[in-house]
Amino acid sequence: MVRSWDDKIFNTIVYVILGLCGLAAILPILYVVSVSITPFGEVLRNGGFILFPREITFSAYRTLLTESNIPSAFRVTVLITVIGTAVNIVLTGLMAYPLSRKNLPGRNVFLLMIVFTLLFSGGLIPTYLVVKSLGLLDSIWAMILPNAIWSFNVLIMKSFFEGLPEELFESARMDGAKEFRILLQIVAPLSIPVLLTVGLFYLVGHWNEFFQAIFYVTDRTLFPLQVVVREILMQSQQPLENAENMMPTQTMQMASVMIASLPVIIVYPFLQKHFTKGMLLGSIKG
C-alpha cells in the first residue's frame, strides 16, 4: 500500500516537471509557428507577439516554396543527408569497434589521435587546399567527405561498444566467427540505440550543413537548404546597403525556419521507440 502511494507521488512529480519542460519548449515554438502564418502587419499590431493567430495566411510558405530556391535546395539537402549519414555510420562503426577492444595494441595512440583533432585543426585555408586538390570543389562530396567522421561520435560509439558484455564476443569467437561478422551480426544489432543516436547526430549535422557549402560550392544549384535559409535570416542582420534590398519580414523568416527544420523534427518521434530501456540487450541475454 505504502509502496504504491510513494509511486504515485513520484509519478506526479515526474509528470509535473516533464510537463513544465514541455511547456517551456512549446511556447516559443508556438510563437515561431504563429508568426510564420500571420500577416506581418498583424504581428506588428500585436506588438510583435502572437501565440494564437487570429488571421491565418500561408503566403510566406507559398512564396518560399514557389519563388525561392528552396525546392531545389531541399533535394540537395536530402541527397547529402542520406549519402552522408550512410558514409558516416559505416566509417564511424568501423573505427569505433576495434577501438572498443581494450587489448588492441596501439589503441591509445589511435584514441589520442582522435581526441587531438577535437581540439586542434589546421584552419580553413589548408583544409580548402586539400578539398581542392582532391578535386571535390563544387560537388556534393565536398559537403560529405571533409566531415566523414566526427571524432566525438567515434568516442561515443566506442564507449557504448565497451559496455557490451564480454561473454558475447568470447562465445562468438569460439564459433570461429570473423571480426567483420561479429561487428555486423552481433555488435550492430545490439547497438541499435547508439547507432540511431549517432546516426541522428550525423543526420542533423548534414541537414544543418551550410559551412562547407559556402566554402566549397559556388554552383547555386548545389546549395543546400540551410544556405538559402541563412540567406533569409542573415539579411535581417545586415545594414541597408541598397534601396532595393528587400528585407524579409519576420513572418518570412519564421516560415523559412519551419520549412527547414520540420522534416528533421518529424524524424525524431519515429526513432524514439528504439530507446526503450534495455529492450534489446534484455531479449538477447534472456
Partner: peptide
C-alpha cells in the same frame, strides 16, 4: 570565401 580562394 574570397580569402580562401585567393590563398588557394
Amino acid at each position: 570565401q574570397l580569402n580562401v580562394r585567393m590563398a588557394s
